[in-house]
Write a protein that binds this DNA or RNA. Structure first.
Lengths: 340, 340
DNA sequence: GTGAAAGCGCTAACAT
DNA sequence: ATGTTAGCGCTTTCAC
């Protein structure tokens, strides 16, 4: 196998000690200019590159951070990850992504795996199933820098980055009401998720403000966050079959939106004109048959902000005890399909 | 900072040598059953976990592999990556993903970065811009196991996994012809990409077989693989403005398909009924306004196969000189939109 | 300004 | 079956 050149090799070739070579390579100030140049040139010529593993072992730093999300293929998360990467690379960190598939157990395994000191910090957006946060809390207490984003928890203190979920929901519902819809259902995500609660709260407040009664029968939860199309189908069919059913559905997430559109496509009668609005960062909304107004989250920025906070945590000389909760604004995008 | 328990700590606590502890932990056969249990229990209780960095340094193996693709958010690639991960995790490998954004320079940087980063092997799908393969060839000659998938090159010998691009294209074109379309244009990817050539070849052969003349004017290339919506728009507008223009477009890739649909959405007159068929692994095709028949690639399987071949290469005791080229079948999916 | 030596956590000869 | 030793590649005191 392929055996790369090491500091020792350079030292031998140049008749120096490996410490001197190391110093030359790391631009230490206590080094003779001539030696430095000699070493640098030799290294360059022989394609030397630092062994990052040895460096990690030595410095107990891996310069890589872990990201745990339900699925990076989801529009929202892929954009967030791009944001994370943009900051990470510019600051010399590597990003390792790992998917929980919205399973609590998978999340625990992934977090554990990443935390085994192969990462310097963690960026987490909780799985839909997660109710118990001890696996993360423990690491946090142990000193591992962790920043939560999007799907957060109040069960312990750390930096958190979210979007203005309640306000976003209110804007969407208000827009629906302005357009004459009053029987608005809510297709919600898993109930214990922070985003679920906040968006639900927005939904309720907006209805109340317009003197529309909130009915529990108009709210359906998807406990698996829409991973199972089955559960979305059931919810949508339930709405469709209701006596005096909804004329609009407010959908709580990216994944659920797609699922909801699919379910309607399959089960709604052709003449059904139910209106859809909801959270989605999809980039193909305007190609869809059905009109769909969406609330956009600033995913890329959330990634950037979260990563910056994590680096701050990692590189802090003193233990951090004051934590920030950053909330970013959403944007309402009204879509006019050709059906208009 | 958070200082995890090491083998040494266990050794001290149990009054053993660290080698014994190491042996117990790695289920060596030359160990007393009692001691093994004692060690395992202590380790369990104290949440010991191996330091993978030290292990890597020692064994010159990182048990991680690198994946380089243009963008993991793309449907095809995200499915392929899921396939890769499914095999990787089951065999104890970690997967590090890195995106080239279809830029040659970014690809070179990423490949270099991963190679330095001591991955045990690389899974690569070339960027749309890459014409020169020396950056990969060098590593390959140096002994780094590399498997190419989807977008491959013949410029050096290694395992390759592709889908039956030519056959897939032929099936799609034939289906179009059967449905009465005869003026079929081709929206192609970057010209030097292997998939571009194969799909183009299929397009030509299928036309010829039906005695339809192949016209170069009916073929447009997207040199950036559709990363710039601009270039897709230009191609589509060109087709729309042609005198005696196409009645159908055969689109070469996932990304281009979305781009093409967007362009049509924006620039085609309302009464335009141009038919679309092409390569796509999108899961929202049936929600689209416009009818779109797609050729599905077995992305997940490609990932699995490629990863298995890579592991074979990595774990081989003797240098491998015989390489395989696996080709997987595609599937034609006819979509009937509500517009039917 | 440079070198010698120690050590990060681990495993694999080589003893015993 | 267990311990001793050495070393993976690197940096960092501590001498000089």
């Amino acid at each position: 196998m392929f055996k790369p050149i090491t500091i020792k090799d350079i030292a031998k070739a140049l008749e120096l000690s490996s410490s001197t070579v190391s110093r030359a390579l790391s631009n230490s100030y206590e080094i003779n200019e001539k030696t430095r140049i000699r070493v640098l040139e030799y290294a360059e010529q022989h394609h030397y590159s630092r062994n990052p593993i040895a460096l990690s072992l030595r410095q107990r730093r891996s310069y890589s951070i872990g990201v745990v999300v339900c699925e990076p293929a989801n529009n929202f998360f892929s954009q967030a990850i791009n944001g994370i990467e943009s900051v990470a690379y510019s600051k010399g960190y590597h990003v390792v992504i790992s998917q929980s598939h919205d399973s609590y157990e998978q999340e625990v395994v992934n977090v554990q795996h990443l935390a085994n000191r192969s990462v310097d910090g963690l960026l987490i957006s909780m799985s839909a199933e997660t109710k118990d946060f001890t696996h993360i809390k423990k690491l946090h207490l142990g000193g591992l820098p962790i920043v939560l984003f999007d799907r957060v928890t109040d069960s312990f203190e750390t930096h958190k980055v979210t979007s203005a979920n309640k306000a976003g929901a209110i804007a969407a519902i208000k827009s629906l009401i302005e357009n004459g819809y009053r029987k608005i259902a809510h297709l919600a995500n898993a109930p214990h998720l922070s985003i679920t609660k906040e968006r639900l709260q927005g939904y309720k407040e907006a209805l109340q403000e317009s003197n529309i009664e909130v009915q529990e029968s108009m709210i359906r939860y998807c406990h698996h966050g829409g991973r199972l199309q089955e559960e979305v189908n059931d919810a949508v069919k339930y709405f469709l079959n209701m006596e005096d059913g909804p004329d609009a559905i407010f959908v709580a997430s990216d994944r659920l939106s797609i699922g909801c559109l699919k379910a309607l496509n399959e089960f709604a009668p052709k003449d059904n004109h139910i209106e859809i609005a909801g959270f989605s960062n999809s980039d193909v909304i305007d190609l869809m048959k059905r009109r769909f107004s969406c609330i956009r989250q600033p995913a890329f920025d959330m990634g950037r902000v979260a990563m910056n906070l994590l680096i701050q945590l990692i590189e802090s000389k003193v233990p951090v005890t004051e934590f920030e909760s950053v909330m970013l604004d959403t944007q309402l995008l009204k879509h006019h399909s050709s059906a208009d």
